[in-house]
Design a protein around this nucleic acid. Sequence first.
DNA 1: TTGCAATTACGAATCCTTTCGTATATAATT
DNA 2: AATTATATACGAAAGGATTCGTAATTGCAA
Lengths: 127, 127
Amino acid sequence: MIPQPTNGELQILRILWKQGPSTVRQINEVLNQEREVGYTTTLKLMQIMHDKGQLSRTKSGKTHIYTALLTEQDTQKQLVDKLKDSLFQGSALKLVMQALGDKSTSADELKQIRDYLDELSDESEND
Amino acid sequence: MIPQPTNGELQILRILWKQGPSTVRQINEVLNQEREVGYTTTLKLMQIMHDKGQLSRTKSGKTHIYTALLTEQDTQKQLVDKLKDSLFQGSALKLVMQALGDKSTSADELKQIRDYLDELSDESEND
DNA sequence: TTGCAATTACGAATCCTTTCGTATATAATT
DNA sequence: AATTATATACGAAAGGATTCGTAATTGCAA
């Protein structure tokens, strides 16, 4: 059971997924584009994430380079499943309808979803 | 800006959505079907939710009857949007694909989604 | 090698959620 | 009216996340 990443942890994971392995300074700089965070705050959080096994790190000179051990996919799945179970009675259908329901989804995206549904149907035919 | 309900708050909201207005005792009984919780724990949480404006209450004899002020729909939307923005770069498409991607969705559900997509397309044509 | 700048380590403070014990209030029952 | 059962109110403790100040360490540069 991997415990769910906290909000702060997710923020850091997002940056690592996007940029790849990074130093505390690099992460902190990106973070500060969104909100003001002290350097040692970011450091501490990344140390905790390392303790928790969410990040690995290697030493390069005197600095540590951190790498995400959780994949974006797995984390997405974990959180989508949780939301599905806790608010949509486990129904992917309900969740999807809610996600699409606000009409902000473009026609192009809708088409892509349709194509994806076709793929899924094809696969199940071949079971 | 309605702050996001916490986990404990969501648990109570779910029961209220399902059962309608309820007393603390009623909520606590349902809660205890899932996990052991003291009565005053549930009471306190519902009092806090009342303070926060998530629940209203009316007095009936010596007991309070609580009602959810947040709707299930609004809360679903709030949490889906948050997940979409924070983990899927704001893309409903990506979120939907992740939600459907684990192959646990039945053919019937897939069909329902397809029908729903048709509805959405029809609507946009009429804009 | 000595000192400087950057980095890490450590510990504490703060904030929020969750939990529950105890006290108080209220209504029904005897 | 006194007793009992049930409900609410209050306050504190425990646990976790977040924040950051300060100390210790490290590598480089003068």
